[in-house]
Design a protein around this nucleic acid. Structure first.
Length: 507
DNA sequence: AAAAAAC
């Protein structure tokens, strides 16, 4: 096993066992060295554009044996690790400093407190670290507490990484916020806090969720005393508000986490808010450890984050390896926009009933509520969620879905990222994800959406509805980008849908 | 012509 991550340009030897484990993805062209992972462009015209990056991991190559070849000058002072094990595909780590890290086979190796270990085993039911946890936890927990930019597959346990990081770096005896986690949506912030509460049950560490509250539960910032919980998890607006009104002191913050970090640092995401939070904290202490976690980092964001987050250890996954093959993807050509509803009713719903839970993604708030009322009017039981709903309605819809009361949830991209519900087996892209004001697909959102199924190794299926040339172009771009062929299911064949279910291992 | 977010 490639267990060591050593400094000073030491490269790790892959044992034969590791090399052979790439069999789980034989359809992936790992051996095509000409394709540099992480490139946004499919072709390699741009190959020479960014060769001079300080920590350009992409200049590493994987040879046929799965061995990491020595990169030219780039990694002279960096440690490299290429981890491949039964988990699945390659995760690639590059360290920024001289600190050697050893990947953690067990949670015991991490010097966690007994209380925290107890939380991991008895509350969370974990046995051993997943791959991303094995690699990133030593990086997070070993002094001098370097920054980290981490990428790992959807549903692979990223939340555990940063929650564990926060819990073990925080001192429960100090009644002041020491860890801060910034999330893109209210739902995700609340979900993350629930994980933290559960995992930290025996630690005595307390936390608070900094998210908007509905009028009924509203506490004005002027009346709210300063936060004295050790961990704060929230969304940018509320966090900024709390910080500016001194409700949240940043003086003791020593670990700052961005969940869905690519979105939090993207220009058309929360870049401004995030940078302000970073600067605000660094004003007080420049040794605050910053952790970035996401399943996706497009090339722009990757460039930006590596520039903005200094001296960061990096853990990345090739984009071709990112598409989870446990989630079977299909496309359904619908004759027209109206037929999409029929396909949903006649083909998807009968399956969905037997299969657990489903999420139907649409592009706009309006589409969400229109589709919802249309289906409801015809007697189908489903709910919908989007950012325009009242907070209490959002909470109720989520709760009903969490408890399994509702099986089918229509959603905008408010739930595209991070939402973790093990019972979700089916995702439908009723509208394909497209970038704003552009004919291009949003590859990242696509991956995040379908990743709502197949959580932690479970099986899942995703149906993409296509009803015009534009959709076809978008879909084929997605196929090329992730190097996956997405087979068609004929919309008018009930048998075909049944067969597909079997194929996906869900029948 | 977007979603999200205490705008």
């Amino acid at each position: 096993m490639a267990d060591h991550m050593e400094g000073e340009g030491t490269l790790l030897e892959q044992q034969p066992k590791d090399a052979s484990s790439s069999e789980s993805k034989t359809d992936v062209t790992v051996t095509e060295e000409k394709k540099r992972w992480g490139d946004v462009e499919f072709d390699d015209d741009k190959k020479d554009d960014k060769v001079s990056d300080a920590v350009d991991i992409s200049s590493l190559k994987i040879s046929e044996e799965g061995v990491v070849d020595r990169a030219e000058a780039v990694l002279k002072s960096d440690g490299v690790m290429d981890a491949v094990d039964s988990d699945d595909s390659n995760i690639r780590a590059v360290t920024a400093g001289d600190t050697p890290y050893t990947s953690a086979k067990t949670f015991e190796e991490l010097n966690l407190s007994p209380e925290l270990l107890r939380g991991l085993y008895s509350e969370m039911g974990f046995e051993k670290p997943s791959k991303i946890q094995a690699i990133s936890l030593p990086m997070i927990l070993t002094p001098p507490y370097q920054n980290l930019i981490a990428q790992a597959h959807n549903g692979s346990g990223k939340t555990t990484c940063f929650v564990l990081g926060m819990l073990s770096r925080v001192d429960p005896k100090i009644a002041a916020p020491q860890a801060l986690c910034v999330c893109p949506t209210r739902e995700l912030a609340m979900q993350n806090q629930e994980v933290l509460v559960k995992m930290g049950k025996h630690t005595g560490i307390t936390s608070v969720c900094a998210v908007p509250t509905d009028a009924g539960n509203y506490v004005s910032t002027s009346r709210r005393g300063p936060v004295n919980d050790q961990v704060v998890i929230g969304t940018p607006g509320t966090l900024k508000k709390w910080m500016s009104t001194k409700v949240l002191s940043t003086r003791h913050i020593k670990i700052l986490v961005f969940d869905e970090a690519d979105h939090m640092l993207a220009q058309d995401g929360f870049q401004d808010d995030s940078l302000r939070i970073i600067r605000d904290i660094q004003k007080n202490r420049d040794d605050c450890q910053i952790l970035l976690f996401s399943a996706t980092y497009d090339e722009n964001v990757k460039q930006f984050t590596t520039r903005v987050i200094s001296k960061a250890n990096q853990v990345f996954v090739k984009k071709e390896d990112l598409s989870l093959d446990v989630i079977k993807q299909y496309l359904v050509k619908c004759p027209d926009e109206l037929a999409k509803v029929e396909v949903l009713k006649d083909r998807i719903f009968p399956l969905a009933e037997k299969l657990g839970q489903s999420i139907i993604f649409v592009r706009t708030r309006e589409n969400a509520s229109m589709l919802h009322s249309k289906l409801e009017a015809e007697g189908y039981k489903c709910t919908s969620i989007q950012g325009g709903l009242k907070l209490e309605d959002r909470d109720r819809v989520i709760k009903e879905f969490r408890t399994g009361l509702t099986k089918i949830l229509i959603s905008t991209d408010v739930l595209a990222r991070g939402f973790d519900q093990a019972q979700v087996t089916l995702v439908v892209n009723f509208d394909l994800p497209v970038k704003h004001a552009s004919p291009d697909p949003d590859y990242e959102v696509y991956l995040h959406r379908i990743g709502r199924s197949g959580r932690f190794g479970r099986k899942g299926a995703a149906f993409n509805f296509i009803c015009n040339d534009r959709d076809e172009r978008i879909m084929s771009k997605i196929e090329r980008y992730f190097e996956r062929q997405v087979p068609e299911v004929p919309w008018d064949s009930e048998d075909a849908f049944e067969a597909v279910l079997k194929d996906a291992g869900l029948a």
